[in-house]
Design a protein around this nucleic acid. Sequence first.
DNA 1: CATATATATATGTAGAATGCACATAGAGTA
DNA 2: TACTCTATGTGCATTCTACATATATATATG
Lengths: 136, 136
Amino acid sequence: MNNDEKGQANGGREPGFRGVEARPRNWLVPVILLSLREWNSYGYELMERASNFGFEAMNPGTLYRTLRQMEKDGVVESSWETSRGGPARRMYTITDAGRAYLDFWARSLEQYQQTMDTFFRLYTGRPLQDKPDEKK
Amino acid sequence: MNNDEKGQANGGREPGFRGVEARPRNWLVPVILLSLREWNSYGYELMERASNFGFEAMNPGTLYRTLRQMEKDGVVESSWETSRGGPARRMYTITDAGRAYLDFWARSLEQYQQTMDTFFRLYTGRPLQDKPDEKK
DNA sequence: CATATATATATGTAGAATGCACATAGAGTA
DNA sequence: TACTCTATGTGCATTCTACATATATATATG
């Protein structure tokens, strides 16, 4: 709903809505933390693994910037790995705070699933409430 | 993960994470459209109805600005209602494009639910893949 | 009548999230 | 040498959204 191409009413045809994915904010952070909880990793590899969560063709800039911010926030720690061929890698490790954050987010996600249920109940045509009378 | 109060590792205690709700982007737009699909309404009333979706204490500015943007995008239309007591109301009606947008969003939401299932499967300890060997 | 309150809509500003484009650099290989 | 793969980043613009504040009308209350 935020570009020129979307355009006017198109009578119910499949619209070319961009940026209309029902994806929560901060999705990337928990996905990274979940990956790091399994095993330590680095940006380039995390990018591939993130695609398992629907982050297809993840753009590198967003990922690397997010990782640096996460380190500032204390949910991950990093160190350079230079003991092998190829460019140096910044290896990341999840912290205790990171695990706590992940748990918190998972609980929040459960709550959100209930909200989605409510949405679908209304969407599929079973209103939760009748139209109230005009007040006063 | 974006404020000073979150702070450092806290060893798994319940953290005071702010803004860490698993809430999707653009949630407000479909909620408004869903409300308007049931019956025409206006900002002040929509604000109350939005609270049914977990938008507690919605701040008015966000809602009214969103409504105006939605009209620009062609998913709603509005007209002033002055034929009654009290301040004038801007009454909103959903358009065909709005209905199309809502349908699109709902389908997107279904896709996203699968992604969440994947997330929870990993979170609760059943990895989808083993750690691959170091390449090359 | 004056003032307060409820109703109703809106702007200004700032910060966070995010996408897109582009920049940098090491190591192997043709 | 040039090219490609691997790997990490920055700059810029847009969007989303929270918070504070402004405006106006009608009704209730003293």
